[in-house]
Design a protein around this nucleic acid. Structure first.
Lengths: 190, 190
DNA sequence: GTCGCCATTTGATATATGTCAAATAATTAT
DNA sequence: ATAATTATTTGACATATATCAAATGGCGAC
């Protein structure tokens, strides 16, 4: 999972001026360092924690026919979590792997749900985040549904240049739904 | 937009036992018949109404290079709306076309927002719907990202046989991200 | 610095799917 | 019912992308 939006940021800034909320939050939130290669969550496990990236990079992926299909990239301020697993308490369809040493804020999903109940502003943030995430998914879907491999790469380059800069080709390729050889050729031609 | 889930249904059933809510809702909701071919919303316009299908069928689509790309199919109990346009008041990226004469419950987005504020249970329904919709989109994304055309068709057949039964091939094909000729051949071979 | 391990590029070929065109089949209107 | 329109199937060929294999390049361990 992944989202970002200006109004959500603002709402959070305001919310954290409330001391009660701040205390309740930092009672449960923990900062942790993760190393390159660590798994924040493994496919098949239930997602019990919500991870906010303070620095670093993470990718989501799942296995299909023995090969890894990348579903998302997350960077600073992005939230890492399997929405499906966390809300339904079902096995996660995807794993999340740390791509470079990352500082992460960890909150348990259970505590987060309590906080949402306790502080309506957090419930509001959650709802807005869901909306933003769904809209982001709609966009990505449209891109995969009918753009050519080259168009998809160019869209990625334009919208998320940090991905192209920082992530290895094989991950970008599977994210775009193509092989790394094809991606390499697209880049060579321009 | 499109969603459906058991717990949401249950929550709504309970909610509508509240007379105040029921009255407030039916003050603003209107039933309307739409005819095959009608557009509920046109690409580029702002989505000001939320449509719930009481009967019939609707499809969402957008134009790319002069051809229609189908993004969704909606049937009885599904909600038709451009999430992006309704929440951000931006031009809708997609149109919604009535596929067969349909009975529809219409509520303005503005009123719906008021009702959500007024009745927390409706806010909860909204949030759960967003979660369900995002999860549905994640699934669809995974399907488009790395399944072959045949696999995607078989998944559709299994999960949404009513689409395959009721909708014309060209719409199903663009929904799957393939041409209608390819879909026809997939069906022929089995 | 050198070796060894990955990542990336490049090449040759195979395959899935698209495109264009025509032939049937199914619906709809008259 | 018949004609007209629209949807689906089928065929021949073009193209994008995948696959397999090998060559090159970059980078960390020692």
């Amino acid at each position: 999972m992944k989202y970002q939006e200006a109004t959500i940021e603002e709402l959070l800034t305001t919310a954290f001026q409330d001391e009660a909320l701040r205390n309740a939050y930092y009672e449960t939130a923990q900062e942790k360092m993760f190393k390159k290669g660590d798994l924040l969550l493994e496919q098949g496990q239930i997602c019990r924690y919500c991870y906010t990236l303070l620095s670093g990079a993470v990718r989501g992926f799942y296995l299909k026919d023995g090969r890894e299909i990348t579903t998302s990239f997350c960077f600073t301020n992005d939230v890492v979590m399997s929405l499906e697993s966390a809300t339904r308490l079902t096995p996660s369809p995807e794993s999340f792997e740390v791509l470079e040493d990352s500082l992460v804020e960890v909150v348990s999903v259970e505590k987060l749900n309590q906080l949402r109940q306790q502080f309506p502003v957090l419930e509001k943030v959650w709802t807005l985040s869901m909306e933003a995430y769904a809209i982001w998914l709609e966009e990505r879907l449209a891109s995969l549904q009918f753009a050519t491999a080259k168009e998809r790469y160019e869209q990625l380059l334009e919208r998320y240049p940090e991905i192209v800069r920082n992530v290895q080709l094989s991950h970008i390729a599977s994210y775009l739904g193509i092989t790394l050889e094809t991606l390499s050729r697209i880049r060579a031609k321009g």
